[in-house]
Nucleic acid binder design. Sequence first.
RNA 1: GUGGUCGUAGCUCAGUUAGGCAGAGCACCUGGUUGUGGUCCAGGAAGUCGCGGGUUCAAAUCCCGUCGGCCACCCCA
Length: 442
Amino acid sequence: MSIIQPRTLKGFRDYLPVPMAARERVLEVARSVYRSFGFVPIETPVLEYSEILFGKGGEESDRQMYRFEDNGGRDVAMRFDLTVPLARFAAQHVGTLGTPFKRYQVGPVWRGENTQRGRYREFVQFDFDTIGTESLVADVETLVVVHDLFVALDISDFKIHFNNRDLLNGLLERLGLLERGASVLRALDKLPKIGADAVRAELHESSAATSEQADAILALAELRGTNDEVLAALPAIVGESPHAVTGLAAIKTVLEGVRAAGVADSRVRLDVSIARGLTYYTGTVFETFLEDLPSIGSVCSGGRYDDLASLYTKQRLPGIGGSLGVDRLMAAIDELGLIDDRGATADVFIPYFAKDRINDYLSLAERLRKAGLSVELYPEPRKLGAQMKYADRRGHRLAIVVGDREWEAGTAQIKDLASATAQEVAFANLVERCAALLEDGV
RNA sequence: GUGGUCGUAGCUCAGUUAGGCAGAGCACCUGGUUGUGGUCCAGGAAGUCGCGGGUUCAAAUCCCGUCGGCCACCCCA
């Protein structure tokens, strides 16, 4: 009988225990940060009617969508992000939810594009969004959430690049390029990657921009200096159209807001080259980069989408939020050597080596668990050395060694695996001693 | 989707130029140590050379196809 080749699809991956444990720690941190701002959890289906998902993010996202006919003949698709399903969700349930509504949601999304490092066909996003308010307070808080998230993740070198679509539209309006806005923004978005000359060439080619128009766009994009300096130089470039005025005011409010919330100026940068490809963005847009690993791209992006839900409801439902790219972030953390390689989930390890005492071991382990410790009991009476080696590899913190001698005496040996120090304690004091060791061992 | 590049043991990789016995380091297992891990010593196990086909007396090596990784384009988390 021939065996079936065990394999996964291109861009789809298995997660082994060590990296999975690291992922779970990241998810726990993100969840607690979101909750600390009052976001509440929801979940939506992986599959939606195609009409819900198509035509919302632009041509590119339509092309990348996994789409098929289900067994009941329905035209369905797998979600491309969590934002479009949220807009549908909000339109459908706003009556029971009320506004403003702040939710967080984690789950896989699918994009049928070519793979690369940090780019997969199935990947997990951890989103937070605020629906039902146009207040710039939500824009400010969105950036503060991202800031607090990366601080909590202990990632030191991140920078949030933000911009405003209204500001860009204001400039396009002044230049008479609003019609060709999509291709202009696409060219502008490439500035950090391909440089000014290449962007200029692309502007001529794809957007039929004149030299004057290209100059104006590049003048905007090449503004340098502190956030305040860039902000001060902007009005002269973008003009005074309603869009431009709105955008400028929003940027100013956001900058002041995040500063007031205690975000260091060095963490947030006004970067007018940030445009973002998804067509549903309207006001504030942002991307988050790791300074030590810019090539992997943005690990947390988002923005304001004030018109998205209007596709599903007549009620006005503006929104803004962000999306943590969990898989991309994990790839970055891995690359930067920041993964915690402990594979053990239990702090305490109990080797089983007094053969006839298995029921005593079982009872001891459960007693410790009831006292709040996490305990792994080895399932076979192998020789002690092999079991200690297992615990060492897995990264357990303590081993509780109890053999015939200890069972007789009513004592146990607690061994700190990192320092290789051991102490003999009576069963009565076991929990207390373990807790103390785990406490100050960190 | 297009172009480039790579795929050899669990991992990192030699070997491919010019066809001639499938290798190293690390990891793993056993023993030295009948009750104590990380060091050391000795030994052991482990590979459809990504997969399929072709050329050849002979293919990891050459040719075609395919799958997968990486890079670029595109786009994005």
